[in-house]
């Protein structure tokens, strides 16, 4: 890369859960004039740029994904007790580990909060921002990015609209 690479600052990334799901690992970086979405596809990392001057909208929709995930993990926790029917020390250990991990993921999911589906839209592309699909992360992301976009678009766009 002969030209100087812009300095990127990481502002969000998908949780540890996405390490095990190919194509689900997304990270968001911010540079001086654009937002960079890096999507990891096992052996590739794909980049999408959203220049602050081009961003038309950021849209978030509430999703029930976290409720269904909580229900699924809540069902998994008592299922771990079936290992205790084995009446064997190894079965007890596996059962305890099962309950611990399922319970930990359930608690983590509840603490992480509600899920959204977030998309960013420009004139040329619309992309999903999986890295900010939790309520708190979306709020933090908006607090960083929205002022930058507004600052970039306000003076030039206003002068462009006025004849």
């Amino acid at each position: 890369m002969p030209e100087i690479t812009p300095a990127y600052r990481k502002i969000a990334s998908t949780s540890w859960f996405s390490w095990f799901l190919p194509g689900m690992r997304n990270s968001l970086y911010v540079a001086d004039d654009h937002l960079l979405l890096a999507t990891q596809m096992i052996i590739f990392e794909k980049y999408h740029r959203f220049f602050f001057s081009d961003i038309e909208a950021i849209i978030a929709a509430k999703s029930n994904r976290w409720i269904w995930a909580s229900v699924a993990w809540a069902v998994c926790v008592p299922l771990g007790m079936l290992w205790y029917l084995g009446r064997n020390n190894w079965c007890y250990v596996v059962g305890a580990c099962w309950i611990f991990f399922a319970g930990a993921i359930l608690i983590w999911n509840l603490l992480a909060g509600p899920t959204y589906v977030v998309k960013i839209q420009t004139a040329a592309q619309t992309r999903r921002l999986k890295a900010v699909e939790r309520a708190r992360r979306y709020a933090a992301f908006s607090a960083i990015v929205v002022p930058l976009i507004v600052a970039e678009q306000q003076p030039t766009r206003a002068s462009a609209i006025v004849p």
Binding site: S53, E56, A57, I59, Q153, R157, A158, I161
Partner: peptide, 16 residues
């Protein structure tokens, strides 16, 4: 019927 929040920016109104 999904609950949607839209943050729109001035670029949305600029014609192509």
């Amino acid at each position: 019927s999904a609950q949607v929040m839209t943050t729109a920016f001035p670029a949305i109104t600029i014609p192509s």
